[in-house]
Amino acid sequence: MLYIDQFVYKNKMCHFHPLEKVIFAFVTILLSVTTDKMAVHLAIMAVMLSLLVFKAGTPVTVVGKLLLAPTGFLLAGGLSLAVTVNVSAAGMLVALTIGNFYLGVTATSLALATGVLLRSLSAVSALYFLVLTTPMTDLLHVLQLLRVPAMVIELVMLIYRFIFVFIETAFSIYAAQSARLGFIDFRRSITSFGVLFANLWGKAFFKSQAMYNSLLSRGYEGELKVLSPEYKFSLPNTLLFVLLELGLVSLVFVV
């Protein structure tokens, strides 16, 4: 099974202090949301994706595949922004006549669509930079530093862990079913899926009870207190991020 996590733990920026990466990513996202300049958006994408591929060593194919998902949505959304309907074809670059209406693309709608598309992609690439270089537990550590209530952090931690327990359980049921031809045709698939779902619930309850017992055995008293590894700030890394960010921000004033 393919988990994004596999690449996160292998990436070469994994040991960076999470706060450095979080600040860098969020300042960039803020920049991307506030500026209208296309060159800046393109520069953000270029910086983030090259950091991922060259500095962190995330495989290009992984980054590409991950980018495809939001790009699909954005293209569909962009299309609806680019295409306008009007009673006259005035100002339309290309137009299609439908009865008394014109379906077309104007210069402004095209600019709007491209703007939204680029802005979203640049923000997404900044977010991907964070997600693909920073393990979940490091992000939780940042939430702790930001004084997010312990309850929220514990919930995120448990949900994160259980997503994988859930997937693994579901997958093993699925494998057992398909090995006995549970998904041989549409009708059998429907039945098998129902059984899978029902069993997954049963197992989830059983597992949560078992986990509660094991937590009690290790002295659980209502709070999941854990110790994070020690993170170290690094001057060269911080400088790199600051320089890149300054470059991106100054681009806003230059172009």
């Binding site: 986990m211 002295g219 999941l224 207190k225 854990v226 994070s228």
Partner: peptide, 20 residues
């Protein structure tokens, strides 16, 4: 799988001593 609850090995092992 029912015993390990945390996102990292280090955190998980630290849970008991933290409770102490």
């Amino acid at each position: 799988d029912s015993q390990l609850f945390s996102g990292s090995v280090y955190q998980d092992v630290s849970f008991g001593p933290m409770n102490l």
